[in-house]
Amino acid sequence: MSKLEILEAILSPVVEGLNYECWGVEYISQGKHSVLRVYIDKPDGITLDDCTLVSRQLSAVLDVEDPITTEYTLEVSSPGVDRPLLKLAHFEQFAGHNVQLRLKMPFEGKRKYSGIIKGIEGEDVVLVVGEHELLLPIESIDKANIVPQFD
């Protein structure tokens, strides 16, 4: 299991036990400036009190489990309107929405794409960019965020 998979396995049940959805976990390893970011969600939105409650519970579990041996900052946050898409299910849920994404390696000479999520096929995200449809393996996507639409 990767570090991220271990963290998700430890943290998701805690978040869900508090009646929130664990939207996702990000771990950015940067020495003393490492960040463990946990996104939580619920149907009527997230407040600062929600983040504080979850943060306290996660801190206690992380102190006991100690999956990160170096210094880090724990951040608990709402995914927001420009929510990150971290799992294949997120891309399926947000089919029809605009997205900006960055690939780990260039595809057709580019790493950054903007388009509309058509859906998923197996382990691939189907992205419509202009007149073209791209099939992008989920493991090739480094970062993806919904582009908010305001009417």
Rank of each mutant, 00 (worst) to 15 (best):
S34M: 05
Q30C: 04
G119N: 11
G31R: 06
L134H: 05
G31A: 12
V64I: 13
H90F: 04
V54A: 08
P43E: 15
V99Y: 03
V61R: 11
G130R: 10
A9L: 05
D41Q: 04
E108Q: 13
L85E: 01
E133I: 06
E8M: 07
E139I: 12
L53P: 00
P106H: 11
V147P: 02
V129G: 11
K32Y: 10
S77D: 13
G45H: 09
G119S: 13
V147A: 15
A60N: 13
E108K: 11
F107I: 04
P84G: 08
Y20L: 05
N98M: 09
D63K: 07
S140A: 13
R111Q: 15
E8L: 09
I46Q: 04
P84W: 08
P106I: 09
S114F: 12
N98I: 02
F150H: 13
I141N: 01
V125A: 06
E71M: 05
S78V: 01
V129Q: 12
L18S: 12
H33P: 00
V76F: 04
I68M: 07
L58W: 07
L134M: 08
E71D: 13
E139P: 01
V15N: 02
E131C: 04
L85R: 00
G80I: 04
D142Q: 09
L135G: 01
G80C: 06
E8H: 08
G31M: 03
V15T: 07
K143M: 10
H33W: 14
E8N: 10
R111S: 15
K143I: 03
A89V: 02
D49W: 07
L85G: 00
A60V: 07
V54I: 06
A60I: 08
V147K: 12
I146A: 02
K143F: 14
A60M: 13
P43C: 02
G130Y: 15
I146Q: 01
P13A: 12
D82M: 05
L136W: 04
P43Y: 09
V147T: 15
H33I: 04
I68K: 05
E121K: 14
V14G: 07
P43F: 11
G24V: 00
D82K: 03
D82E: 13
Q149F: 13
V25C: 05
Q57S: 14
G80P: 01
Q57H: 14
E75H: 11
L7F: 14
L4H: 08
T47W: 09
I120W: 05
Q93S: 06
Y113E: 05
A60G: 11
G24N: 03
E133N: 08
Q100F: 11
